[in-house]
């Protein structure tokens, strides 16, 4: 990807958009984040993946100085998270994972308030963002659905054209069309040079927009990888129903495929491309195909499997 070549020289000129060194936050017994080293270059969309409770929100709240690290440090745009938090927040657009807005305000009032706290934002731009998300700004927030509240949250994160966007589970509660529009927001932000840090507990939410993905598990960053190579390692599970029973050995000789045949149904686990499986299946009459993407746990496992094989 051209991005990696570009970022090498970028790092020499200016500090990364987001950087952490040994960032650790422990809260008594509860899991926080342990010894996190991250480096996210300018212009990158970074997907921060992990199951709920893995430490994603903790990381984000450390970057914004809502939490104070137990040890280690974080920098955003070269500014120290503890010392220059106000300046960092001036340059950052943030969408919290658990979004709660002032219920008695209308969407427009809330955006006006936050816009004023930022020293004024372009009202035309705000209207445009709301229009694209099909968001009615006149309604009181207490009367908005979860999805519509999320839209207000998205508009306030993008409205001041921030240099860095930190978005915690941004598309939760959004219908697919709005998710597409959100992806367009992300592309437009990176097109003007912004960096996007996007957390999620599902790969599919970030794979369309992210360049790289980091996976955090039980407070530790286990892997940072290019989205495409991660997906190539990902396992996909297929269930194919045929019109009539297929020979038990129909899928056994394909590379990276494990198959179990039961009468006219085949259960398949495939790593990487599903193309050979589909071609093999096409030799018989197919009634139905159910495809399920590997969840994160399976991606970890395949990642570890890869590691062990390499050693």
């Amino acid at each position: 990807m051209a991005l990696n070549g570009g970022t090498q020289t970028e790092t020499l000129r200016s500090p990364p958009a987001i950087q952490t060194h040994g960032l650790t936050k422990s809260y008594g017994k509860a899991r926080g984040i342990v010894d996190l080293d991250l480096e996210i270059p300018h212009g990158e969309v970074f997907g921060y993946l992990g199951p709920n409770g893995a430490g994603k929100t903790t990381t984000i709240r450390l970057l914004l100085d809502f939490l104070r690290p137990t040890s280690g440090s974080a920098e955003v745009l070269g500014l120290e998270a503890r010392k220059n938090s106000v300046e960092i927040r001036r340059q950052v657009g943030y969408l919290p994972g658990e979004l709660d807005l002032y219920p008695t305000m209308t969407g427009r009032e809330l955006l006006t308030y936050f816009g004023k706290l930022r020293g004024g934002v372009d009202a035309v731009h705000v209207e445009e963002l709301a229009r694209r998300l099909d968001l009615d700004l006149e309604r009181h927030i207490k009367n908005l659905s979860k999805g519509n509240k999320q839209k207000v949250g998205i508009v306030q994160a993008f409205m001041h054209k921030p240099k860095v966007l930190i978005l915690d589970e941004p598309t939760s509660g959004l219908d697919p069309l709005v998710q597409l529009e959100f992806q367009a927001f992300v592309h437009e932000a990176t097109a003007r040079g912004a960096t996007v840090f996007l957390s999620s507990h599902v790969l599919s939410e970030v794979e369309e927009v992210a360049h790289r993905v980091g996976i955090v598990r039980e407070g530790r960053l286990v892997v940072v990888e290019d989205v495409r190579s991660l997906k190539s390692k990902a396992l996909r599970q297929l269930e194919i129903r045929f019109a009539e029973p297929v020979p038990p050995d129909s899928f056994t000789n394909i590379e990276n495929v494990e198959a179990r045949v039961e009468d006219n149904v085949v259960y398949i686990t495939v790593q990487g491309s599903v193309d050979p499986v589909i071609k093999a299946a096409a030799r018989h009459e197919v009634r139905d195909v159910i495809s399920r993407e590997a969840d994160l746990e399976e991606i970890f496992l395949s990642y570890y499997r890869e590691q062990t094989r390499a050693e």
Binding site: R89, R90, Y94, P96, E98, D100, F114, R118, G119
Partner: peptide, 14 residues
Amino acid sequence: QRHTFDLLMANPIS
């Protein structure tokens, strides 16, 4: 307690 403080504090204000 009403979870509105994070978003307020995301603004550039100490």
